[in-house]
Structure formats: structure tokens, C-alpha cells
């Protein structure tokens, strides 16, 4: 494991625990920091107000040069860009990833995506996708076409 991986994740964990952004709480970071669970709370005044969801982050050794694998576990929010298996259609998690992004900024992006939803609904191709999708959302070829939500 490269030293940059451990150093950076340790630092991110410390920062997140010391001053977490609004509505974001780190639950656990286990297995040598390779798997994190983060609780996000729906922002006030949005469709998801009062609801809490759990995001699972899995890092491989190339983090932060490669994006983490981010999925919703347990209670998956109903959102036009979130499939019922927890996969999230969000460009920064796949080909728009940048090593300057952090776990905290990813969580904030997802929260913002939830907040800008105008209607609670599954993506139109949800049934098809969950039949064919692999376990990791990173093996899906994503097409990003909707900037509004």
C-alpha cells in the first residue's frame, strides 16, 4: 500500500471527525481505512429532509488518483439519478474524478444532488440497469446527460 494512500485517508478521517460538514457523519473506517461508511442527512427544506442515508466508500490502493467506489447501502434514497441497488449516477465518481476531491466534497456533492431533486422517482431505466449491473458501479459505462438535478 502506498504511503500517500494511508497518509491522505488518515488525514481526511481526522478532518472529517474534527469538523464534519453539515449533515455528514463518519460512522466507521475499517479494514485499513479501505472501507468507510458515512451517514448523510437530507438537508432541511428538501424532499429528503429528516431522512438519513448511509454511503459506503471503498478505496483501492490508487486512491486518490483513482476514484473511490461509492454506493448507498441499506436505505437507498429514491432519486432520478440513484438506482435501487445503490449505484449513483454522478460524473465526479467516474470519469470526472479529480484527486483534489475529498470524501467530504464527494458527500457534499451527493447531498447537493439529493437537495436539487424536484421529484422522488427512480431513474427511468432502473429495472433494466439493476438486472445487468455488476457489483461495482465503477464497471458501468456511465452517460451523463442531465445537469439539472
Amino acid at each position: 500500500m502506498s504511503s500517500i494512500f494511508t497518509k491522505r485517508l488518515t488525514k481526511e478521517l481526522r478532518d472529517l471527525q474534527a469538523n464534519p460538514p453539515m449533515g455528514i457523519t463518519v460512522q466507521t473506517a475499517e479494514d485499513d481505512l479501505k472501507c468507510w461508511r458515512v451517514t448523510v442527512r437530507g438537508a432541511e427544506g428538501t424532499l429528503y429532509e429528516g431522512e438519513t442515508f448511509v454511503l459506503q466508500f471503498k478505496f483501492n490502493n490508487n486512491y486518490p488518483l483513482e476514484s473511490p467506489e461509492v454506493v448507498f447501502v441499506d436505505n437507498v434514497p429514491i432519486h432520478p439519478h440513484i438506482y435501487s441497488n445503490g449505484h449513483i449516477c454522478l460524473s465526479i465518481l467516474y470519469d470526472q474524478w479529480s484527486p483534489a476531491l475529498t470524501i467530504s466534497s464527494v458527500c457534499l456533492s451527493i447531498l447537493s444532488m439529493l437537495s436539487s431533486a424536484t421529484k422522488k422517482e427512480r431513474p427511468p431505466d432502473n429495472a433494466m440497469y439493476i438486472l445487468t449491473a455488476k457489483k461495482s458501479p465503477k464497471s458501468t459505462t456511465w452517460a451523463f446527460h442531465d445537469d439539472s438535478v
Binding site: K7, R8, E12, R14, D15, A18, L65, P99, A100, T102
Partner: peptide, 13 residues
């Protein structure tokens, strides 16, 4: 912890 102006944007060191 947070006041370092000269952190690398990738490794945060």
C-alpha cells in the same frame, strides 16, 4: 491541522 497554506492538493501534505 488546517492552517497550512502550502499543502499539495493531491496528498494534502
Amino acid at each position: 491541522d488546517e492552517g497550512n497554506e502550502f499543502e499539495c492538493n493531491i496528498c494534502l501534505e
